[in-house]
Design a protein around this nucleic acid. Structure first.
Length: 287
DNA sequence: AAGAGGCCCTGATAGC
DNA sequence: TGCTATCAGGGCCTCT
C-alpha cells in the first residue's frame, strides 16, 4: 500500500501527536505479521518515552531516549490510527476514545499513551514491527538498502553506473530497494512517464541523459506526492482517516485505455505486467 | 552475481 | 444469491 510519500505523511502526523509521550500500556491481539512480533516487544517498549520519529524509505523509525526503539513497516495494507481521548460527558467529566474511522477487524496492536492511542491495523499482515537495541542494530537493518531519491548519493552517475550490464528492465529496478529506496509500484510508473522511458526498456540501454531524467523526476514526483498528502487508492492513508490527494494527479497509473496526458501526444495508456506487477505507460511517448 | 518466479494474506470486485 | 477467479500500495526466499 504505502510508498515513501505515504509513509512520510504518517511519520509527520506521528511526530505531531505522539512525540515526547510515554507508552503506558501495550496490547497485542495478533503477533503473526510478516515476521512474528518479538515475544518481548511489550516489555521492551513499555514506560519508554518516544524521543524522535524518523523515516527511512518505507519504514517509520520510533526512537526512545536510550537510542533503542522500533521500526514499523506497513507492507501492502497496513495503516496506523491515532485515537485521542475526548470528553464525552462534561457533567461527569468522563472521557472515552472516539474512533469513527477505525476498522472493525485486523487491529493487531494497540499502544496506549496517556491521552491518545496508536493502533496498528493490517488485513494482509505483510507489514511488521521490529524492535532494535541501539543505533548499530538499526543501521544493520538497512545495510542492503540503496539510497533514497533525495539522498546525495543518488546521482545520475550512480544510476548510470549501476545500470551497466544490467539486463533487467528499468521498471523493476525502480522497485528494487537495493538500487533505490522508497519507490513502489505507483510512483515507478508515474516517474517513467515523466522520463518518457518505456518501463520494459533494459537498464543497460539507458543513456546518461535518461539517467539524468530518472534522477530528476524521482525526486520531483515523490516531493509533489508528499505535498499532496500522498495517494489514496482504496482506503484512507493518514492517521486521522483523511485521504491523500495525489491520485488526482496520476498520469498513467490505473488509466488503462485512456488518452495520454502529455500535450500533443495522441497515445493511449497501456497496462502491462512486468515482473508480476502492473505497469502503466503511454504506447507512443514512452520509448 | 543476476534474474525469474513463487509465496506470504485478506478483501474487493468482476464475471458467470 | 452465490460461486470462482483475479488483482491490490511490498518484499523475502529459493532456484537456476
Amino acid at each position: 500500500m504505502p510508498e515513501l510519500p505515504e509513509v512520510e505523511i504518517v511519520k509527520q502526523s506521528l511526530n505531531k501527536k505522539i512525540r515526547g509521550k510515554t507508552i503506558k500500556k501495550v496490547s497485542v491481539k495478533n503477533r503473526n505479521l510478516r515476521f512474528k512480533l518479538a515475544s518481548n516487544f511489550e516489555k521492551k517498549i513499555i514506560n519508554k518515552k518516544i524521543d524522535r520519529i524518523n523515516r527511512f524509505s518505507k519504514y517509520i523509525i520510533l526512537k526512545f531516549d536510550d537510542n533503542s526503539g522500533f521500526v514499523i513497516h506497513l507492507g501492502m495494507s497496513g495503516t496506523i490510527h491515532l485515537i485521542g481521548k475526548v470528553k464525552k460527558n462534561t457533567i461527569t467529566n468522563s472521557s472515552f476514545y472516539h474512533s469513527p474511522n477505525l476498522p472493525k477487524k485486523h487491529n493487531h496492536i494497540e499502544i496506549n499513551f496517556e491521552k491518545i492511542k496508536l493502533i496498528y491495523n493490517d488485513p494482509r499482515r505483510f507489514g511488521y514491527l521490529l524492535i532494535f537495541k541501539n543505533e548499530e542494530e538499526l543501521k544493520k537493518k538497512f545495510t542492503n538498502f540503496g539510497p533514497e531519491p533525495f539522498s546525495k548519493n543518488f546521482t545520475s552517475i550512480y544510476i548510470y553506473n549501476y545500470f551497466r550490464n544490467k539486463k533487467k528492465n528499468i521498471k523493476s529496478f525502480l522497485l528494487d530497494q537495493k538500487f533505490v529506496s522508497g519507490i513502489g509500484n505507483i510512483y515507478a510508473s508515474e516517474i517513467l512517464f515523466f522520463c518518457r522511458i518505456n518501463p520494459s526498456k533494459k537498464a543497460k540501454n539507458l543513456s546518461l541523459n535518461d539517467c539524468k531524467k530518472i534522477f530528476y523526476f524521482s525526486k520531483l514526483v515523490l516531493k509533489k506526492a508528499i505535498k499532496q498528502g500522498g495517494s489514496s487508492i482504496r482506503d484512507f492513508k493518514n492517521t486521522t482517516g483523511n485521504q491523500g490527494k495525489f491520485q488526482k494527479n496520476f498520469k498513467v497509473y490505473q488509466r488503462e485505455n485512456l488518452n495520454c496526458l502529455k500535450g500533443g501526444c495522441k497515445g493511449v495508456i497501456k497496462k502491462k505486467f512486468i515482473s508480476n506487477r502492473s505497469s502503466f505507460f503511454c504506447n507512443i511517448c514512452q520509448k
